[in-house]
């Protein structure tokens, strides 16, 4: 029995509202001009990044040339110098070394700069520390944040408002203020210069942010979905896994990116609470001082390599980031 009557197809209309005055030729020209200016400004603000790239590949003897050289023969000295320990050779030793037929590529590069390779630098392992610590703390803070956010969103927790504010307030604290107490605490607990120590700290700091952000995302998922599942016979955990999680993926991705960026770049605590074992890259890079003057190209290489992982992750997840930043701006 048909009594139906409808337009079939998706319900949301295709909306592409273009207001009348935005189509005039003058308005279009203005739009283009604005785009050009914005691009120029963006390029200008990227100059420091271009500079770092330049400096990373410039031979040491041309680094501080005045006027600054933009056109040069690139060399891998900075990069190699970053990853190796070296010392300056005298002229005679240099000449002698040059004639050695068993020189590796790395040796040769350093020879051009007047140095001899004596081993590898700690940078590689410091980078690995960064990856491990930032990665682990991000995973932990997102995981626990998700569970807390779900609880705050769905359950009737007494004093929820106060608790949430309390959680957020940890983010209002300038980290430097608590470095000394934490340093003392860690030392007596034996957590100083351990991976676990830093992971724990970063997790705690990131938790506040991740709870807040994830709660916002979960609030947006209508609870009718889980309630339908509950009524159908699923437990709450199953409902969470099958229904909430797939829909919260965008939010989880956005939160992950933010937590990762914070943990990756963190400097103050890393400096105070690590020395040999668990040192991460941020405090390590400025301490790369050469043996014969400041090796700017090495430092720049360090920065460049440090930048790359986070740039890749952010680029890969860029559309989730946008959602995370603009999210919550419109409250219902």
């Amino acid at each position: 029995m048909t009594t139906t009557f409808e337009q079939t197809g998706p319900r949301t209309p295709v909306v592409e509202s273009i207001r009348v005055d935005k189509l005039s030729p003058r308005s279009r020209l203005a739009g283009r001009a604005r785009a050009i200016i914005a691009t120029v400004l963006a390029l200008i603000s990227l100059i420091p990044v271009f500079w770092i790239i330049r400096t990373a590949f410039i031979p040491l003897n041309e680094v501080t040339a005045i006027p600054p050289k933009i056109i040069f023969t690139p060399s891998l000295e900075g990069l190699v110098g970053l990853l190796t320990d070296d010392r300056i050779l005298s002229e005679s030793a240099l000449a002698a070394k040059r004639n050695d037929p068993n020189l590796s590529f790395v040796d040769r590069v350093m020879l051009n700069a007047g140095r001899e390779v004596v081993g590898s630098s700690p940078y590689a392992s410091q980078l690995v520390n960064s990856v491990v610590i930032a990665g682990a703390s991000t995973i932990l803070s997102v995981f626990f944040g998700l569970l807390s956010a779900y609880a705050f969103s769905r359950f009737n927790i007494p004093g929820a408002g106060d608790l949430l504010f309390f959680i957020l307030s940890t983010r209002m604290l300038p980290p430097v203020v608590v470095t000394i107490p934490i340093f003392l605490m860690y030392r007596s607990l034996g957590l100083h210069d351990t991976h676990i120590g830093l992971i724990l700290l970063y997790t705690v700091f990131n938790l506040s942010f991740s709870v807040w952000l994830l709660k916002g995302f979960i609030d947006e998922i209508p609870r009718e979905y889980e309630e339908a599942a509950l009524v159908d016979g699923y437990t709450r955990l199953q409902a969470f896994r099958k229904i909430v999680l797939p829909q919260a993926l965008t939010g989880i991705a956005a939160t992950t990116v933010f937590c990762l960026i914070f943990a990756w770049n963190e400097y103050a605590f890393a400096l105070m609470l690590t020395s040999q074992n668990a040192r991460t890259a941020p405090p390590a890079i400025p301490s790369i001082l050469g043996s014969g003057g400041i090796e700017w190209n090495t430092i720049a290489s360090g920065v460049l390599i440090f930048l790359i992982p986070v740039v890749i992750v952010t680029f890969a997840l860029r559309k989730y980031l946008l959602r995370g930043v603009t999210f919550g701006a419109i409250r219902k």
Partner: peptide, 19 residues
């Protein structure tokens, strides 16, 4: 008309909110 038939778009064109 039913949803999606164009009535709101027509109104918005009269108002100038839609070109």
């Amino acid at each position: 008309g039913p949803s999606g038939c164009g009535k709101t778009t027509t109104l918005r064109m009269i108002s100038g909110l839609e070109s």
